[in-house]
Structure formats: structure tokens, C-alpha cells
Computed example of a mutant assay.
Amino acid sequence: MRNSRPTTLENPRLPVQAELAAAWTSLMFLYIYVDYLALYKPGFVDDLLAGTVHEFDTGPTFVAMALTLMSIPSLMILLSVILPARLNRATNLVAATLFIPVTIYNAEGESWSYWYFYGFSIGLEVLLLAFILYSAWTWPRAAAPTTTAGPDREVASR
């Protein structure tokens, strides 16, 4: 007996908000894992214990700036789901645009022996930011409402 079930899988379109939230989540996972894996680089922990990261003093200013910087993509996960469409689109365009140079800067001062590690991670992060920009830029538009009454037609009143 033949199986009459369809064999093609349905691929429904996700709402733009879900795509954006997923992309920001992926970006945050990459940020976290790159920072974690950097701990395995020889000398990194020694520099950290001595109070420096990327030539920066790890005092209160550095920690506050790092938290502020990473709070933006963290909050974008939630904001991508709850903001109204127009504000959501603008916020995603601005945040993703600002994070491209921030992401690229992470390679500053790194040795060439880690070019694959930083090149690969930064490449993936920039691709995710490009996807966010593309998704926000091409946000679907709602069709204009149509009316049956116009200047040449009278609306019947009861």
C-alpha cells in the first residue's frame, strides 16, 4: 500500500522578531565562548591576574564599560521580540551597525598565531550582524488598508 503523506517538509517563515532574537542570541554565545576560550591562550590568565586585558587596566572603568558594551546585544534579544515594528527595525539597524566596528576591534593587538581563532570568530560575528542588518532592513511591509468608500462614493448610513 502506498503512503499518501506528503514527502516535502513544510518550511514556514519565522517572524522577523524571532529571526532577530535568534541572531542576537547566537552572537552572544559567540562573544561568551570566544572570551572563555581566550583564557586558554598562554599568558592570558597571567595578564588578567596582573590587571590587564588588551592593554587596558581591568579596574572599575573597564569592567563597567565591558558590562555596558555587552548589555546592548544581551538586551537586543528581548527588545527584538517586544518592541513595535518601526522602533524594532530602527533599533536593530543602529545596534548592529555600531557593533560591527566593536567586533572587528577585538582582533586589535592579537598575535598572528591566533589569526584563525580571531578571524573565524570575528567573521562569524560580522556575518550574524550582517544578517541582523539584512533582516531589519528588509522587514516586511503591511499592505495598505483598502476602503470601499471614497470621495465619489457615499457610505450608506442606517
Rank of each mutant, 00 (worst) to 15 (best):
V81K: 08
E110S: 13
Q17V: 01
I72G: 01
L20H: 10
A130E: 08
K41H: 08
T68R: 04
S157R: 08
L124M: 08
R13K: 10
L14Y: 12
Y31T: 12
A90G: 02
A130Q: 05
W24Q: 05
T147Y: 15
Y105L: 13
M76A: 03
P140R: 15
R13Y: 11
A21C: 07
A143G: 11
L9H: 14
E154V: 05
Y114E: 13
T25E: 13
A66Y: 03
V126S: 07
L78C: 09
A90H: 02
R158M: 11
L124V: 07
S135V: 11
Y105I: 07
M1L: 06
Q17C: 04
A22V: 09
A142H: 13
T91F: 00
V16P: 05
M76S: 06
F56M: 14
A156E: 13
Q17I: 02
G109S: 12
S4G: 06
L69R: 09
S71H: 03
R13L: 13
D57M: 05
W139Y: 15
A50G: 05
A38V: 03
E10T: 04
T138Y: 14
F99V: 00
A21F: 08
S113F: 09
W137M: 13
F56Q: 14
F120P: 00
M1P: 01
L87E: 01
L69Q: 10
L49N: 09
P42R: 06
V45T: 06
P6H: 07
S4T: 12
W24F: 15
Y134R: 14
L39P: 02
I132G: 13
E55V: 02
M76Y: 02
P60G: 14
T68M: 09
F44D: 01
R2Q: 06
Y114G: 07
R5T: 07
G51Y: 14
L39T: 03
I132S: 13
A38H: 01
A90T: 07
T91N: 01
I72H: 04
A156P: 03
L133Q: 12
F29T: 09
I122D: 11
P151C: 11
L27F: 15
L93W: 00
D152R: 05
P15M: 08
Y31M: 12
F99H: 00
Y118V: 06
R89K: 15
N11T: 10
S111K: 09
T7M: 05
L14G: 08
T68N: 09
A136P: 05
F44A: 02
Y105M: 14
T58V: 14
V102D: 02
T61D: 15
S121W: 02
L83C: 00
S26N: 12
D152C: 03
S113I: 07
F120W: 04
S121G: 10
V34I: 02
R153D: 14
E55W: 04
L87T: 01
W137K: 13
R89V: 04
V63L: 12
Y40D: 15
F99T: 00
L93A: 00
G43W: 11
L79S: 01
I72A: 04
L67N: 02
P151N: 12
P145S: 12
L87W: 00
T7P: 00
L78R: 01
E10A: 10
L75R: 01
F62R: 01
L93Y: 00
